[in-house]
Simulated assay, not measured.
Amino acid sequence: MPAETAANGPADAGTALFSARIREASWSRHQGLDPSADPDAAKAPGVFDRLFDGSLSVDDYTRWHAQQYFVYEAIEAAAVRFADDPVAGPFVFPELARVPAIEADLKFLMGPKWRSGIEPLPATKAYVDRIDEVSADWPGGYIAHAYTRYLGDLSGGQAFGKAARRNFGFEDDGASFYVFADIKSPKVFKEEYRARLDAVDLPEADKVRVIEEILLAYDHNGAVLDALGKVLGRNPFEPKVIAAICHHMNTDHAADTLVICQGVGGQSGAETARMTGFDGDGADFAAVVDGTEVPIRVDWAAPLSERAEVRPEIVRLFTESKSSLSLGDAR
């Protein structure tokens, strides 16, 4: 959940406090993500809307949760780099770390093979790439992305956790991402966080850049939500089924997966490959070609809706791929 502007409203015009400047600059972005901001807007219900009205399926909730994993993994990798930095270090709080909680939630939602069943959407990858790029050596980059996510989680994000527990019957597992057990008072914590923003040792040009980066973080988050919104309810397979089959293909049939990518996947030069997911229309793979991983989409012969239908289709893809590659060798 991007930052906490909804709870505070726009800052007073002309204020010199850095935290207030951030809130004022990001107010319109926050309103754009808030499902209650414009009730008359003509748009299809998105992830937030469906979570709050109770119509979001647990499968789509899981897919949303999975995309957040990649974002927080990137932010928390940057936190390790900046832990001792005199500028960014004061914003590295171990009690904010979300990756262990997301991992626990995904294990609960998808089973022990959960990692094989998640892959960043293109919009998520762009978001992660931006976090990696801007926080590689600039303290302000880490501050911008950490602020946008964590203070949002402590504010409006708490309503997400309540909705998930109410809709899906979760107690701890499944929504532990929203539980900050080591923060006794979110209000006091956020006040301290904003005080550190106001005292941060950054030149004015860098403060402006931080604000711009926060706005970009909102835009990236919005792009991920839009991408998820376009596929809500469209995948007939449970995430745990996808994880189990992908894990099986990538561990027990890695050579077959490579053949599929080289054959019907059209990447004859693929060096390694893995299955990354599937839906009712086709399967997704990632293959390393000339040292670079490239995505591959292969359509099923006909739409699928049952787990039992997946194996015969994978066998068909392998058989056709092996045949085409053999013919190519013969020529």
Rank of each mutant, 00 (worst) to 15 (best):
E4C: 07
D299W: 13
S116Y: 11
S116W: 10
P203E: 10
L304W: 03
I143R: 00
A136T: 15
N235I: 03
G169E: 10
K113N: 12
A79G: 13
G169M: 02
A66H: 00
R209K: 10
G328M: 14
A217K: 11
E103K: 10
R63F: 08
V241E: 14
V71R: 01
E133F: 03
V224P: 06
R274Q: 08
V99N: 12
R23A: 15
L215A: 14
F52N: 01
G169F: 02
G14H: 08
L109C: 04
G328C: 13
P35L: 11
V315P: 00
Y69D: 14
D226W: 06
A287T: 04
I211P: 02
Y72F: 09
R297K: 12
K113E: 14
D226I: 15
S26N: 10
E24Q: 15
W114D: 01
D172F: 11
G117H: 01
F278V: 15
F108I: 02
I260K: 06
I102Q: 05
P100D: 08
R307E: 14
K162D: 11
R63M: 07
I143P: 01
N8D: 07
R297M: 05
D40V: 12
K190G: 04
A181H: 07
K190D: 05
D153T: 11
H248P: 02
G9T: 08
L96I: 09
P303L: 08
A83G: 05
E213T: 11
F318N: 02
V315M: 01
H248M: 13
A88F: 04
I102S: 00
Y61C: 00
G263Q: 09
I260Y: 07
R115V: 12
E103Y: 10
D85M: 04
E192K: 01
H247V: 14
N250T: 08
R21I: 08
K113H: 06
E171K: 11
E271T: 07
